[in-house]
Design a protein around this nucleic acid. Structure first.
Length: 411
RNA sequence: GUGGAUGUAGCUCAAUGGUAGAGCCCCGGUUUGUGGUACCGGUGGUUGUGGGUUCGAGUCCCAUCAUCCACCCCA
């Protein structure tokens, strides 16, 4: 390369070793989600900018400074999606499904946020998301958490902590918020600079501050949990009963706050302490107001998103599949026939690499490097007799076989 | 957006301000029908980039870009 061409900052290439891990996660997700009768949807990566302004909230960091938004050649304001829920709701409304009963959707694909990269945080990252439209819970909340748990368990992830909270609703949150702001004003002198900013933008975030002084000052802060309206309190209580009944362990964390404006009531995070500062691996909650907010009828809904790269960091990437056979072709005369034999074996379902002809030593080296289980030597002698020389690469044993014998012995 | 650490061969890393090196990998040979071991040889670098200081800069200074980590925020 004359000049260094690099991918954009925070946007990484998925190379084979890593992608095998992604594929495994996706495969497990599909299997588990389908068992709960969810269906995959494929949604646009490009959406109108306004969609996110109206759903996530214009004051959030995501919308105010992290979106890849631009005006296209036709003058339209479009952006790369920073998350999946808003687009899913848009699609649900656009397809006219509001009177078709509950919809169970999942999707996987890239999201884009222009943040400063760090461990577990990229500018283009992949999410596996799931949305359940038209269900008010709390039964469905329980089922969704059971599904999420089943997914993570199927991946072999243990040691994840489920943290649960209720964010209240339109009825009870405003009063609580006012109460909290009053409290915060009283202790403002003890709060850090960023907390002062949070007091205006999103006061509930103050509760989540990592600063020790702030946490000390906040020890008597009012919590949403203690100020839920009767309906929200009942919802939360029945959710907890359901989780207990299914034996799903969790801890109530009154400080977890979902970052996006549209969440209400149930909020949850599956977190690990193995990923540094970005320990949230799967998170979501209820967003009963969003569909109406985007122009549809009042429709309750709940969903979550999981970070694929974060999950992958917690798992071993699977080993590549070893070729069953490496074909070593000796002599110009046998080359074409050896290629035909390689294809014939592939048609039988075997993984076959052809070593390209040329020197025997070179080809055996390739076969070794590919970690092929067997090498098939195909030279002029074999071609005339219609057989292969089969070499076991571990024992070094060699014998002559016909194609039929070979296929039979591999069953 | 803020702060810290780090940028030398494809990879992992050396080089008191004085000729840019090693190991691994890759290619070839010792063996023109036999790999993993061994030996021999070879390819490969404007030291991230651009300035500055100096007789002389991989080394010191400034800027910039990128990576990593943390803040912020979030999956």
């Amino acid at each position: 390369m004359a000049k260094k061409l690099r991918s954009i900052r925070g946007i990484h290439d998925g190379l084979p070793d890593q992608v095998r891990g992604f594929q495994h996660i996706e495969q497990v997700a599909r299997a588990v989600f389908e068992r709960y009768a969810f269906s995959e949807v494929r949604l646009p990566v490009l959406e109108p900018t306004e969609l996110f302004v109206r759903s996530i909230g214009s004051a959030t960091d995501i919308v105010s400074k992290e979106m890849y938004a631009f005006v296209d050649q036709g003058g339209d304001h479009i952006c790369l999606r920073p998350e999946g829920t808003a687009g899913a709701v848009r699609a649900y409304l656009q397809a006219g499904l509001t009177r078709s009963g509950a919809q169970r959707w999942y999707y996987m694909g890239p999201m884009f946020r222009r943040e400063r990269p760090q461990k577990g945080r990229l500018r283009q990252f992949q999410q596996i998301g799931l949305e359940w439209f038209g269900v008010a819970g709390p039964v469905e909340d329980v089922e969704l958490l059971a599904l999420a748990t089943a997914f993570l368990k199927a991946l072999g992830l243990d040691g994840l902590r489920l943290e649960l909270n209720s964010l209240g609703c339109e009825q009870c949150r405003p009063a609580y918020r006012a109460l909290l702001v009053d409290f915060l004003k009283g202790i403002a002198g003890d709060l850090c600079e960023t907390c002062h900013e949070r007091m205006d933008k999103n006061p509930m975030r103050v509760l989540d501050c990592k600063d020790e002084h702030c946490q000390h000052a906040l020890r008597d802060a009012p919590e949403m949990i203690g100020h839920l309206c009767a309906a929200c309190a009942n919802h939360f209580e029945r959710l907890r009963q359901g989780l207990d009944a299914l034996g799903l362990s969790y801890e109530v964390n009154p400080r977890i706050v979902r970052g996006l404006d549209y969440y209400n009531r149930t909020a949850f995070e599956f977190v690990t302490d193995r990923l540094g500062a970005q320990g949230t691996v799967l998170a979501g909650g209820r967003y009963d107001g969003l569909i109406e907010e985007l122009g549809g009828p009042a429709t309750p809904a709940i969903g979550f998103a999981a970070g694929v790269e974060r999950l992958a960091m917690l798992l071993e990437s699977p080993e590549p599949r070893r070729p069953d056979f490496a074909v070593v072709s000796l002599g110009e005369q046998a080359l074409v026939w050896s290629l035909e034999q390689a294809d014939w074996l592939r048609a039988q379902g075997f993984v076959v690499v052809h070593c390209g002809g040329g020197g025997a030593k070179r080809q055996f080296k390739l076969a070794d490097r590919e970690h092929a289980r067997y090498t098939l030597v195909i030279g002029e002698e074999e071609m005339q007799r219609g057989v292969f020389t089969l070499k076991d690469m571990e024992t070094g044993e060699q014998r002559t076989v016909t194609g039929q014998e070979l296929v039979a012995s591999m069953q």
